[in-house]
């Protein structure tokens, strides 16, 4: 039971993971004039879950989670994450979000957090979000299954929180969309891991990259 509670604890928006600063391309889509109905918003988030979270973030997290006691191995996965994030706003956002999560866990004394933080600060690791989640969540006592579910839930809630703040959808309607997407997360979390980190994210890559050069931005990506 404790592993489920730990997963809920980490997925809770009250935990200072820094995820609120990232729209993951949604702000760019909204700014480009793509008027998103709730159905279209759901389709965008589902596409991101299926072709980015499940095939890239989840893979890096699961692999790093298995290797969490060997930070050299985690750092190697971390470098692969860097190499596979071609769009700079996502690459920098992942590192910044990882640093935020890591800072919180270092302060509360999660086992392994300070060692990983020292590597990142020394430039011997990049500290991407997925690999950092693996290190600190393993240290905090989550099991791999709980870690994957927490990551998937945070992907959905991050999009929907950003959508509400951007005025794309109302707060109540957003929760209806979250409810529809939870079975997608559950389905994807249960699928076998692909043999490689991969993603197909043209629409969000383009939106986030174009928006990154804008002067007025609410989110980091």
């Amino acid at each position: 039971m404790i592993s489920q509670l730990l997963a809920i604890w980490q997925a809770d928006a009250a935990f200072p993971s820094g995820g609120f600063a990232f729209s993951n391309g949604l702000e760019g889509l909204a700014a480009a004039g793509d008027r998103l109905s709730s159905d279209e918003l759901e389709a965008v988030v589902e596409a991101a879950l299926r072709r980015r979270w499940a095939t890239a973030d989840r893979v890096a997290l699961a692999r790093a989670f298995e290797a969490a006691n060997d930070l050299d191995a985690v750092a190697e996965i971390d470098r692969e994450v860097e190499a596979t994030m071609l769009a700079e706003p996502f690459r920098l956002g992942s590192r910044r979000n990882g640093a935020g999560l890591l800072a919180a866990h270092a302060r509360i004394g999660t086992p392994g957090a300070r060692d990983w933080q020292a590597r990142v600060r020394a430039g011997r690791a990049l500290g991407h979000l997925a690999t950092t989640q693996a290190v600190v969540w393993s240290g905090a006592g989550l099991d791999r299954s709980g870690a994957v579910l927490a990551s998937g839930y945070m992907a959905v809630s991050g999009f929907m929180t950003a959508a509400v703040r951007l005025g794309v959808i109302g707060a109540i309607a957003a929760q209806s969309t979250v409810r529809k997407l939870l079975p997608v997360v559950a389905e994807l979390a249960a699928t076998p891991l692909p043999g490689r980190i991969e993603s197909f994210s043209f629409r969000l890559d383009i939106a986030a990259t174009r928006h990154a050069r804008g002067d007025l931005r609410l989110f980091a990506n």
């Binding site: 279209e40 389709a43 965008v44 988030v45 589902e46 596409a47 991101a48 299926r50 072709r51 095939t55 692969e80 190499a83 596979t84 071609l86 692909p194 490689r196 980190i197 991969e198 993603s199 197909f200 043209f202 629409r203």
Partner: peptide, 18 residues
């Protein structure tokens, strides 16, 4: 860098958000 993807025609033909 490594740019990898897998995609089906159905996903691109459907009204998905891709």
């Amino acid at each position: 860098l490594a740019d990898r993807s897998s995609i089906t025609g159905e996903e691109l033909s459907a009204a998905s958000g891709l």
